[in-house]
Amino acid sequence: SADYSSLTVVQLKDLLTKRNLSVGGLKNELVQRLIKDDEESKGE
């Protein structure tokens, strides 16, 4: 998976916004949300 932890919070929020995901929470939560979304989209 992508190394989201190396991105800035601003970059993470931009990715979340593009996916229509919540941008609330700490950086670690944003990273986990993106990883979870990646895993769910692979399952389709």
Results as ranks from 00 to 15, higher is better:
Leu7Asp: 03
Asp38Thr: 04
Leu21Thr: 02
Lys18Phe: 05
Glu44Ser: 14
Gln32Tyr: 03
Ala2Trp: 12
Ser41Gln: 13
Ser6Glu: 13
Asp37Asn: 12
Asn20Trp: 03
Leu15Asp: 04
Lys27Arg: 10
Glu44Lys: 15
Gly24Asp: 15
Arg19Leu: 03
Asp38Glu: 05
Gln32Thr: 09
Asn20Gly: 15
Arg33Phe: 02
Ser1Gln: 13
Arg19Asn: 03
Ser6Leu: 08
Ser22Met: 07
Gly24Lys: 15
Ser6Ile: 07
Gly24Tyr: 06
Leu30Ala: 01
Asp38Ile: 06
Lys27Ser: 05
Ala2Gly: 12
Asp3Asn: 07
Val10Gly: 13
Leu7Arg: 01
Gly24Phe: 06
Ser6Cys: 10
Gly24Val: 15
Lys18Thr: 08
Val10Pro: 14
Gly43Gln: 13
Asp38Ser: 05
Gly25Trp: 01
Ser5Phe: 08
Asp37Trp: 13
Thr8Ser: 11
Asp14Lys: 09
Ala2Arg: 12
Thr17Phe: 07
Val10Ile: 12
Leu12Met: 03
Asn20Val: 03
Ile35Leu: 12
Arg33Trp: 00
Leu26Trp: 06
Ser1Val: 12
Asp37Phe: 12
Asn28Arg: 09
Tyr4Gln: 02
Thr8Leu: 05
Leu26Asn: 15
Asp14Val: 08
Ser5Met: 12
Thr17Ser: 14
Ser41Trp: 11
Arg33Thr: 04
Glu40Asp: 13
Asp3Trp: 11
Leu12His: 00
Gly25Thr: 02
Val9Pro: 06
Gln11Ala: 08
Val31Gln: 05
Ser5Pro: 09
Leu34Ser: 00
Ser6Thr: 09
Leu34Met: 03
Leu12Ala: 00
Ser1Glu: 13
Ser1Asn: 14
Tyr4Ala: 02
Asp37His: 13
Leu30Trp: 05
Val23Tyr: 05
Leu7Thr: 02
Val23Gln: 08
Ser1Asp: 12
Ser22Ile: 07
Leu15Lys: 05
Leu15Met: 09
Leu26Thr: 15
Gly43Arg: 14
Lys27Asn: 03
Glu39Asp: 09
Ile35Asp: 04
Lys27Trp: 09
Glu44Ala: 13
Val10His: 12
Leu21Lys: 06
Asn28Cys: 11
Asn28Pro: 11
Val31Cys: 06
Asn28Ala: 14
Gln32Gly: 08
Arg33His: 02
Lys42Cys: 12
Glu44Arg: 14
Asp38Met: 06
Lys36Gln: 13
Ser5Trp: 11
Thr8Gly: 07
Thr8Asp: 10
Arg19Ile: 04
Asp38Leu: 06
Leu26Ala: 14
Glu29His: 06
Leu26Tyr: 07
Thr8Arg: 03
Gln11Trp: 00
Ser5Gly: 14
